[in-house]
Computed example of a mutant assay.
Amino acid sequence: MRPQVSSRVTSFEMHAHRANPVDFGANIVLALSTTSGKRVINKTVGTNQYVSYTRSSSDGTGTWDARFTEDDSGKNWQCYYRQYYGNGRSLPTIIDVPNTNLIDYLANDGTTFRYNANPDQPRTTKAPTLDIKQLNNQFYDEKSGISVDYLRDYNTGDDIIFEDIIDKIQFNPNENNTSLFFLLDNEYIEWKFNGNITNKYKKEDRINLILK
């Protein structure tokens, strides 16, 4: 995308979501360049990892270039770019998005991802464990019927106990890691773990993990 950057812009923020929020192992490259071609952001990130940059006076204004390059063309990403005005980020102006009670992130592919200012209330009793479908549902706001970028029932610092059946397991010798695959809505979700753990786990084993 080719955003127009005026002298009022103080900083930028980019991030990307896999269409499936529990695909934690996927990576994408976020890049932002000035009109002169100076690369000010160039970082490989995972799903829902943010990268920001504060504009300096020497960066100039005009038409900049924001790019999102995925590491696997078979995966579907939603990519977001944001400009901030003024001295702080608490009240950002979002480009080309109408006023609404939901905050919309501008997506480079025409889709939007929303943050609900009045989300569902957390459940009074959390499930003792979550399988892949329950974990995925934590990123869905039932009241508004939209996907969100936070866990409904958990806060920063909480432990999540994950338990599910391994649908497929594969050692990747070139990367020296092992991929565990879980089936969610007819799609494989791949999580990678360091080293070869195929002697510890096999297909159809039930695995229990603590996510911090």
Rank of each mutant, 00 (worst) to 15 (best):
I28M: 04
P128D: 10
V9G: 11
E204S: 15
A26W: 00
P173M: 05
T111N: 09
D71Y: 07
V9K: 13
E142N: 11
L91C: 09
A117T: 10
F162Y: 14
Y140C: 14
N116E: 12
D185Y: 03
D141T: 01
Y53M: 02
G88E: 13
V148H: 02
F181E: 00
R39Y: 02
T93N: 14
R67W: 00
D153N: 15
T178Q: 01
F68M: 08
V22P: 04
P119S: 08
Y105H: 13
Q78E: 07
N174Q: 08
K43F: 01
N99Y: 07
E175C: 00
K38T: 15
E142R: 02
E13K: 15
A31L: 03
A107H: 02
S36I: 01
S58G: 09
G145R: 00
N20T: 15
S6N: 15
S52C: 06
A26Q: 04
G145P: 06
G195Q: 06
N196G: 11
T35F: 10
T156K: 12
F68R: 11
Y188H: 12
S147G: 12
F12Y: 13
N20G: 12
D141R: 07
N87V: 02
S147A: 08
V97C: 04
N42F: 05
V9T: 15
G195I: 04
S90T: 14
F113H: 14
I161T: 13
N176D: 14
I166T: 04
P128M: 05
I210Y: 07
V9E: 08
L211S: 12
N116I: 09
D149T: 08
E70C: 11
I41S: 05
L30I: 04
S144W: 04
D120T: 04
N208H: 14
R206V: 15
P98M: 08
R114P: 03
N155P: 01
E204V: 09
R18H: 11
S147Y: 02
T47P: 03
N20Y: 04
D153K: 03
Y188I: 01
A16Q: 06
I161S: 13
N116M: 00
K143G: 13
G25I: 00
T54N: 13
N208M: 10
E70K: 14
R89Y: 10
I166Y: 06
N116W: 04
L211E: 12
S36R: 03
N76I: 03
L91K: 05
R82N: 11
N101I: 05
K212Y: 09
D205W: 08
D205L: 03
Q49H: 12
E175I: 00
V97P: 01
W191V: 01
H17Y: 06
S57N: 11
L151T: 13
N76F: 06
I197Q: 07
P92W: 06
L209W: 10
I160L: 10
V45Q: 06
N116R: 05
T156I: 13
N194K: 02
C79A: 07
N108A: 09
D149P: 12
W64F: 15
P122A: 06
Y201L: 07
S7T: 10
N20H: 11
L106T: 12
S57K: 09
T124C: 03
D131H: 06
T61K: 06
G157P: 08
